[in-house]
Design a protein around this nucleic acid. Structure first.
Lengths: 242, 242
DNA sequence: CAGTGGTCTAGACCACCGA
DNA sequence: CGGTGGTCTAGACCACTGG
């Protein structure tokens, strides 16, 4: 079998070379969105490697959204280009430390509330059922950077109110006590409430990035949180390479 | 070999069953972040399938960010949980049509400008070099939903100014004429400029989501665009499942 | 050194699609 | 029906890690 350049041990794995080849054809404009990609058999001939190797290469491209595969039909260059941003659901404590700054917390509220209609709906509980509530203010080098307004399902973390949030952030506490199975979020632009503006030390007219996030742990909706970032000092970013 | 339940043809592929098993252990809290995951050999014994199948299962979990693998060392449950939002870099035209609404465009400006220092820097051109510029307003059912302020590298799309943006949006035009190799973006909250507010028909005090995006095509930085979405009517969202 | 994961092969059977 | 991709096997060699 006429293998790939095996003079050097393995400059690049065979499947990576196949991926690179396919991407190059697309990047160079030789294969355009909607055009067919050669079948696995054809690529197998061309590269002189086993079908499993070709399959791996093309399968990974499909996962990355570069091509679309249909069983029985074939493979085509994908119409949509994806930007796969991968935001980590991370602990703000570690995030700030990584920037070499000091992270501190002030607990503004910590109590149990009765679920109103909206809360009951998100947590799938009865109206009036108890739900834990915490309101924290996070500082980076003494500057307020995030308001964390969080509701927690007692079924997921019965001892939540007893946690020491000066040591362990709610995010970390919940990750440890209510293993994550699912999460959804949305990012929007809002004006802060009077309280939020006061906490963050900004004007009510200064726009904020607000991330609301809902996490599921096993059978329960574990937590719903609203994270408010001040002004134009914060942004969510991402990068993507074909 | 004591295979998996083969009575029914294949309820679920073997590798999916392995993935489900591992995820279940994590979800149930039996295996916690940092804990080791059984070796491929061990799982092979346990499930009675070939190592390739186990390898595929665990490798995919690694890609998804559920576990971390280190060659020669082993596999552990990942410390970080990832939210992999996959924003499509899509054509707003198709996006609006998919919602069953009508999409229209108004071209506000279309011209050539001389690169200032900032533009020259992003495009890696000389100061004073010509750069195409377009300013479009997008409507959904007649309501303004996006201001698209775009700069284009003439080297990537020499005929950009001659395109008919009533038919083909700049996004689509560029995807077709300058195949995408790389893109980066950031999302922030801003107040609109006086002009943007006027175009969108909103107050200057209403916050906007602003996505700035830079695309690379082959050797050139192809385009830099600022997309302004009005008020709190727009959000970027994502979901993630363990 | 033994154990781990990373890659690869040369077959195989199947489900699906389009003609 | 032939061609496609989806899955799987039972081996193999390698690079890397740890003790």
């Amino acid at each position: 079998m006429p293998a790939l350049s095996k003079l050097k041990p393995t400059p690049l794995p065979a499947y990576e070379q196949v991926k690179a080849f396919v991407k190059a054809q697309i990047t160079l404009g030789h294969w355009r969105p909607g055009n067919p990609v050669p079948s696995e058999a054809a690529l197998q001939q061309q590269f002189g490697v086993s079908r499993m190797t070709i399959n791996r290469a093309v399968k990974e491209l499909a996962v990355e959204g570069v091509v679309t595969r249909v069983q029985g039909s074939g493979t085509v260059v994908a119409q949509l280009h994806r930007i796969s941003s991968t935001l980590a659901l991370r602990d703000i404590h570690e995030e700030v430390l990584e920037r070499g700054h000091a992270h501190t917390v002030r607990v503004m509220q910590l109590d149990t509330v009765r679920a109103d209609k909206a809360l009951a709906s998100t947590f799938k509980l009865r109206v009036g059922a108890p739900v834990f509530h915490s309101l924290l203010l996070h500082f980076e080098n003494g500057v307020a950077i995030q308001v964390e307004d969080r509701y927690v399902n007692p079924a997921s973390a019965p001892d939540y109110l007893g946690a020491d949030f000066d040591t362990v952030t709610p995010t970390r506490y919940l990750l440890e006590h209510a293993p994550l199975t699912e999460a959804s979020y949305s990012i929007e632009a809002c004006l802060p409430s009077a309280q939020e503006a006061k906490f963050l030390g900004i004007a009510r007219s200064e726009p904020c990035l607000v991330m609301t996030r809902c996490t599921v742990s096993g059978p329960h909706v574990a937590s719903w949180v609203r994270l408010v970032y001040p002004g134009m000092r914060y942004s969510f970013g991402g990068k993507f390479q074909l």
